[in-house]
Every structure is written in structure tokens, then in C-alpha cells.
Amino acid sequence: MGTRAAGQVGRSGPVAWMALPALVFFLVFGVVPLFGVLVLSFTQWDGIGAINPAGLSNWRSVLSDPGLPHALWVTFEIMILSWLVQTPLSLLLGVFLAGRQRYRAFLAVLYFVPLLLSSAAIAITYKALLDPNFGLGAGLNIGFLTQDWLGKDNLALGVVIFVVSWQFIPFHSLIYQGGVRQIPTTMYEAASIDGAGRLRQFFSITVPQLKYTIITSSTLMVVGSLTFFDLIFVLTAGGPGDATRVLALDMYKRGFQANLMGPASVIAVLLVLIGLALALILRRLGGSTTASQQEGA
């Protein structure tokens, strides 16, 4: 405001140009491809040759393909189950980590380690770890652990959800830790004077106060789950059969293995639409009066 009042004409000029490099990069490799994928969904392209218009044929073939509802189902199954596993655990661990004891800070350091590994490395490790013949179960002679984890539909899905949780719970715990530490301690003091026990304080102070943290973390989880590509690709390659063939994998297989870029683009458009819809729904849950909080999220 002060600068404006000083009447410096063209002041916003030198500031505005500073945003240009980032804008150009994001337009070229983010926004243009976003529209490009919509255009490509109406064309026929094998990834190498010429691109020819194909009208609605890709959409018709993909939407009538029974593989699509299955991929959608698997995607949402993984999204919802991994949310259900991750959220309560991250919240619990976040509250635990928010304590100021030194050993908790030490635990936080160790918790972060899975985030340092690439999804490829994690998938490779679990593949070896869960191998029915040479893995941990066989080595320790524990019957329960010696199963064909990646060879049965439900087990493979469970493994994917477990590994996703293993990889990402630490990250979300840290987000919750930050959120918990911002809750004014006076609220807890007032509540305990009023005789509320810890459990009651947790549900009537901690959880409501963390509303926006929960929304942030859930948005990251849910939108992020649409992009679990590398983990599933290396761990199960969508198998057994197509038990873990999520949308992102379906897109890759149609586009870069079957060389059908048109139908793959249809899947990509669906992914974008689902991501946007989920983000909007979650934002709506946060209420409309919280624009500034949302911006921070």
C-alpha cells in the first residue's frame, strides 16, 4: 500500500516480470499439457507416427471397456483404505510426536527415513522381503508371514496399502505434529479445569482444532494416491492379473506398452478430473470462510 501511495508508476512492472520465468515453465510443461491431453484424447497416435483425429472413438471404447470400472474401483479402494489406515495412525503419532520430550524428537528423525527411499527402492525391498520362498517368513519359519503375498488378489492389495502407509505415515505424522503444536495450551488447561479427561480433550479439542490440518493432510493423501505409479509398477506391475491395476498404471500400460496414446489420454483426462473434483470436495469441507487458511494449506 505504501508503495502505491508513493505514486511510483510502473512499480508493479519490475515485480511482475519476476514471476514470468516460473509462469512460462509452468505454462509450457503444466498447463499446455493439461489441455494437450484433452486434445489427444480425441486423436489416434501410436507414440511415434502421425497424430490423426479420431473423434469420439477413444472415449467410446474406453468408457465401454470393463477394464475401466475395475481400474476406477481399484484406485478408489486403495485411496480410501490407505486414507483409513494412514489418518488415525498419523494423527496418533503426530500427537505423540508433539510432546517435547527429547526421545520423541529422536523418534521423529527415524520416522522420516522411509521418505528418503525412492518408491522403486521400497517396492524392490518389499518384493524381496515378502518372497514366499526366500523372504522374511521363510527365513524365520513363520507360517503367517510365508504367504504368496503378491500372488493373491486381496493380499496384493493389502500389501500395496501397507507399503503406502509405511512410506507416507511419517510425513503426515510430521504435518500433524506441527498442527498439534499450534493449538493454544490454554484450551487444554481450561478443559482440564472443567474436568475433561485426556481422551475427551483429544476428541473435543485436538481433533476439531486440527480440522484444517486434517483437510491438508487428506488432500495430499487422496490426490497423491492417484499418482501411486512407481510403487505399484515395481511392486506388482498391476498384478496379479489386474488386481492392483490403478488408473495411473492403466494409463501407462495403454499408452506406453500397447502404444494407444488416444485411449491412454482418455484415462489421463479422467485422472485430472478426479483429482480436481476431490480437491474441490475437500476444500468445500473446510468451509468457504477459510480462504486464508486454505491458501496456507
Binding site: 499439457p33 494437450g36 485430472v272
Partner: peptide, 18 residues
Amino acid sequence: LMGLAIPLQATIIPVYLL
């Protein structure tokens, strides 16, 4: 901010073309 809500991996095919 909108870019945060979009799974950018979904734009991989046009990026490949580009």
C-alpha cells in the same frame, strides 16, 4: 495453487510429445 490439486503425472503423454 490449482497446480497443487492436479496429479501432474496425468499430463505425461503430452509432455512426452512435447
